[in-house]
Nucleic acid binder design. Sequence first.
DNA 1: ACGCTGATTGACCACTGGTCGAAAAGATGT
DNA 2: ACATCTTTTCGACCAGTGGTCAATCAGCGT
Lengths: 202, 202
Amino acid sequence: MPNQQKYERILDALQELLENHKLQSISVSEIAETAGIGKGSIYYYFPSKDAILEALVERSYEKPLQTAKALAGRTEIPPFIRMAMIFEACRNSSSEFIKSENNKNSGTQEKSFLHQKYINHIITELKPVLAEIIRQGIKAGQICFSDPDALAEIVLIVLTVKMDNTLVPSSKEEIENTISALISLLEKGTDNPPGSLNFLIS
Amino acid sequence: MPNQQKYERILDALQELLENHKLQSISVSEIAETAGIGKGSIYYYFPSKDAILEALVERSYEKPLQTAKALAGRTEIPPFIRMAMIFEACRNSSSEFIKSENNKNSGTQEKSFLHQKYINHIITELKPVLAEIIRQGIKAGQICFSDPDALAEIVLIVLTVKMDNTLVPSSKEEIENTISALISLLEKGTDNPPGSLNFLIS
DNA sequence: ACGCTGATTGACCACTGGTCGAAAAGATGT
DNA sequence: ACATCTTTTCGACCAGTGGTCAATCAGCGT
């Protein structure tokens, strides 16, 4: 890591461009200009443009993911509440990160790559954490389900896809409906009384 | 629709290139060359390169989606079996369409755009059909759930994301596990006895 | 002062998606 | 057969892209 500051400045520049420059594509030259460095220097810190996008996604979710991982050990908090806390942390960062409006047409290739990275990153990072929490809940008798890893994956897939709202664009109301349905499916599926997980919607 | 044959030939060319030319990006010139026409002519039939990808996705799933829609009216078949038939039809076309290998790294931007289009198309087209089938099942007392549309969406999201296997790449075994878990969640969540929906895995 | 190592740069390259005027190919009426 | 008009076809061309590289620059130990 030669010069950490420049590295971060490049990510800052990309983030800034993503916020303003909504719909068109972002070029490496633009990133360099915004970061105040020469274009060639970009490739001293990153092997490719894709790598910059990837690094930005990772950086954007560093903190919420850390707090999520920390939450895995706090066994004194009931598992479903910890689940809700994780979602809340991610939701905040998510809305901050992807504040681009949806125009009529779907995103450009650039954007879809970004969303793919986002979903993939969140799921792969969060899945073991959530699975562990579910496993603890099973042991404590608060959750009844045979395959905690798969359950974690299902929940994460539905949530991230709906939160991202790119793959299946829908209104806020529809998103709420889907999440409500997921919760009631979870209640029944894990032998919890109906309505007991309503607090997951906040 | 000036010359339908050329239109189709362009899609054929793109499909062929997607099968062989696995990892690198595909250029419009390549598509033109493969289709045996001039590059300029491409833009006589399609407004943009993205539109070609989009049209190919739509064409690839035209038949399975039609059979799926036809299945919605066949109320004499139990709902869950119709569900299984739809999935089977899509799975076949899906494995035929996306036969590109996963190299170590994730796909290029081009690919992720394609996968996004695929997932979006399948879900939006299939959701009303599946919701209708579920609604019929509820009326017949075979399914117990309050929001059929949301349930359809949840099922489709998990299935397409796992089938596509790009957003959350995993082994065949893991895919089976996740789908099994989804099924047992469905069983419990819709008041069906455990194991009664095992036939959905085939 | 000198080298030497790592950081920085912009001109440069092959190539991209997309445009456009012109030429070719059909169609039509006489 | 011709002339006229519309629909297709095309490749040279354009601005701009991601990525490369030899040349430079900055710091520092000696």
